[in-house]
Design a protein around this nucleic acid. Structure first.
Length: 615
RNA sequence: GGUUGUGUAGCUCAACUGGAUAGAGCACCUGACUACGAAUCAGGAGGUUUAAGGUUCGACUCCUUACACGACCA
């Protein structure tokens, strides 16, 4: 079965290798040492790249683990024997290795405290990354202007924002764009609903947010339309025909034609109503803290793309059927034949997508263009990419579909017609209210002003919601449980925020006591295992960011932020800071706390989550 | 019907891309506030990774087949 051409190397892979982060350097140095050891001990040439090295599991001593099974054939020795010999050699010849242990075919390598302290001293200055910054466009949100945003949009918005921030953190130049679907039959439906049932009300007169007002008329249209269809069907009309013949649908179609013809009255109503929706959507964006560098409006670009089809026809890459419609044959790519223009010359969805891809390329000259779109469009996106590829467009290779799974409710799928759609504005209000209630109950916020409290509740409520939606692998369909989404214990946003607030409290106290955290700590004799674990966790930051960028998965960052917070909380309960008699060690622990706070703050920022100084 | 994704503890999710005894959170049980913030920490219990085959030193991961659920294309 023919497949799509293999995509070129992921454009972000260079971020993994182009800069040597201290821990990654350590890892590759270690591989080189191992390769050298194999040569010295066994006289065999095994390149460093061939060695499988992995982090040591928690229950064993050590940091890195070499799996020796794959070496047995080449070296003609048993796995344990190999491990012993290599471990001994490393300990004797590599100053950074302080010891080793062998369990079956696993050589666990222990790293010296001096090296950990060196790693610690380098934490603040991890370099920005790419040699040649990638130019990336991330398209996300892309709402219809006939209703307010819902839970599904929230996953989309949080993902898009976060992935953009993650890519920025790797040194890419990122533009966030929003392609607003502001025309078409669904828009006419809400307009018609408004004309028939709206009594000229406005967001001001009704006291309703603009997007919700329009949504109301869209729903009203649908309800009356269903009634008409039911009526016709009862009169014996075939249901499919009834759906087309219903007067409301006929009128909506007529309105769409008028809109396309530029009918002044229709267009001016459309402007007015869309204005209300934009205002409503923008208020939601501001409330949830996402932003865009550029808005595209479908009404401006829906005619684009026809030239691309013409181009393909001229080059004989596409073909016409007898009825005059234009098609592309993608069967060689494992896809189908796909219509690109109808026989009357009008566009289909893919037509304008071809045009927009080109437009975005003209505007941004991107190396890659990411579309944050639900996985129901997987096929469509494959077609888009393959078609552009067939046209020989250089930018086709950079097109990537960040495909994410739908959000389900405990009751099942969200369905507009069954009224089970979770409204974004309402949900945001609820999580903030829950955060407020919990904060008041804890009663630890005295001294904060009313305004500071309000912004704290928002921070915590949104922190809970964003973390909840982002911690799941984007590719996977997920279940939204309202009670769990506002939880603040365990693997949650507020848990991490709490850890930050507690560190902030430590740092305030340290400042009062005059402890200087940014001293040179390399003179410390020996590290406590818990301190070592924490340093190791902190040193992993840039690797995690690179991994998240490569896989376009904020979940990786969420997991990291949680791990850091957990490692710190353990450190916090196990080791006293201010009771510590040795001033050098006390200063070190304060410094460790400060670095942890930074790691938490930075990784949470990549998720679009702010962290408080107290809560 | 065709294509495709998913299936892991009671529930929600991980598992560094083929490595050690499959890990977290919630819920349940047991401990720790007179030390720096208990939105915390330590511990216990909980698994035939949907099923059956196969590949190999080694499989949640790769390959068959079946089952369940979802999406898309007609």
């Amino acid at each position: 079965m023919p497949r799509l051409p293999a995509p070129p190397d992921a454009p972000f892979h260079q971020f993994l290798t182009s800069a040597a982060f201290p821990v990654q350097q350590l890892e590759s140095d270690l591989k080189a040492s191992l390769s050298q050891a194999i040569h010295a001990l066994f006289g065999a040439a095994v390149p460093a790249a061939q060695l499988t090295i992995q982090p040591t599991r928690k229950e064993f001593a050590g940091t890195f683990t070499l799996v020796t099974f794959p070496l047995t054939k080449a070296l003609g020795k048993g796995p344990e024997q190999i491990g012993q010999a290599l471990g001994e050699w490393l300990t004797a010849n590599d100053a950074r290795v302080s010891g080793y242990n062998v369990v079956k075919g696993f050589l666990n390598v222990e790293i010296a405290d001096a090296e950990w302290l060196r790693q610690f001293s380098l934490l603040g200055q991890q370099p920005g990354v790419a040699d040649k910054p990638q130019r990336v466009v991330v398209e996300y949100s892309s709402p219809n202007t006939n209703k307010p945003l819902h839970l599904g949009h929230l996953r989309n918005n949080f993902l898009g924002y976060s992935v953009a921030e993650i890519l920025k953190a790797t040194g890419a130049t990122v533009s966030k764009v929003n392609l607003v679907n502001d025309r078409g039959i669904h828009i006419c439906k809400s307009m018609l609903g408004y004309l028939r049932f709206g009594h000229a009300e406005t967001p001001e007169s009704a006291g309703i947010k603009g997007d919700h007002l329009i949504g109301k008329y869209y729903v009203l249209f649908e309800r009356h339309y269903r009634e008409e269809v039911a009526q016709l069907t009862a009169e014996g009309v075939d249901p499919k025909i009834a759906e087309k013949q219903a007067p409301l649908m006929q009128d909506a179609q007529q309105m769409l034609r008028q809109w396309e013809a530029g009918d002044e009255e229709v267009v001016s109503l459309w402007r007015r109503m869309n204005g209300w929706v934009y205002e409503g959507h923008n208020a939601t964006y501001a409330a949830i803290g996402v932003d865009f560098d550029k808005f595209y409006y479908e009404s401006d670009i829906y005619l684009l793309g026809k030239e691309r089809v013409e181009e393909g026809l001229q080059k004989e890459l596409f073909y016409r059927k007898d009825d005059g419609s234009a098609w592309v044959d993608l069967t060689a790519d494992g896809l189908d034949e796909k219509i690109l223009l109808r026989s009357d010359g009008t566009s289909v969805y893919i037509t304008q997508d071809l045009g927009t891809a080109e437009l975005k390329y003209q505007d941004f000259g991107y190396d890659s263009s990411i579309y944050v779109i639900a996985d129901e469009q997987n096929y469509h996106m494959q077609v888009l990419k393959a078609t552009l590829h067939k046209l020989g467009k250089p930018y086709a290779a950079g097109i990537q579909h960040l495909s994410y799974g739908m959000v389900d409710l405990p009751s099942g799928k969200m369905k507009t017609r069954e009224g089970t759609v979770v409204d974004a504005d309402e949900l945001v209000r609820e999580v903030i209210a829950a955060a407020k209630a919990a904060t008041l109950e804890k009663g630890k916020t005295e001294g904060l002003t009313e305004a500071e409290l309000e912004s704290l509740y928002e921070m915590l409520g949104l922190g809970a919601l964003k973390y909840y939606l982002l911690k799941v692998d984007p590719k996977k369909r997920m279940l939204f449980n309202p009670e769990e989404s506002v939880r603040l214990e365990g693997d949650t946003g507020p848990f991490i925020q709490y850890s930050h607030a507690r560190i902030a409290s430590i740092l305030r106290k340290a400042a009062e006591e005059g402890v200087v955290p940014d001293a040179d700590h390399t003179g410390l004799s020996e590290l406590h295992p818990t301190e070592r674990d924490l340093i190791q966790e902190l040193a992993g930051y840039s690797k995690v960011v690179a991994e998240a960028a490569r896989t376009q998965s904020p979940a990786v960052v969420a997991q990291y932020a949680y791990d850091v917070a957990k490692a710190y909380n353990r450190f916090y309960t196990e080791l006293p800071i201010f009771v510590e008699p040795d001033p050098a060690r006390k200063a070190f622990r304060v410094a460790l706390s400060a670095q942890t706070a930074q790691a938490i703050k930075a990784s949470m920022a990549l998720l679009g989550i702010n962290v408080p100084e107290r809560m």
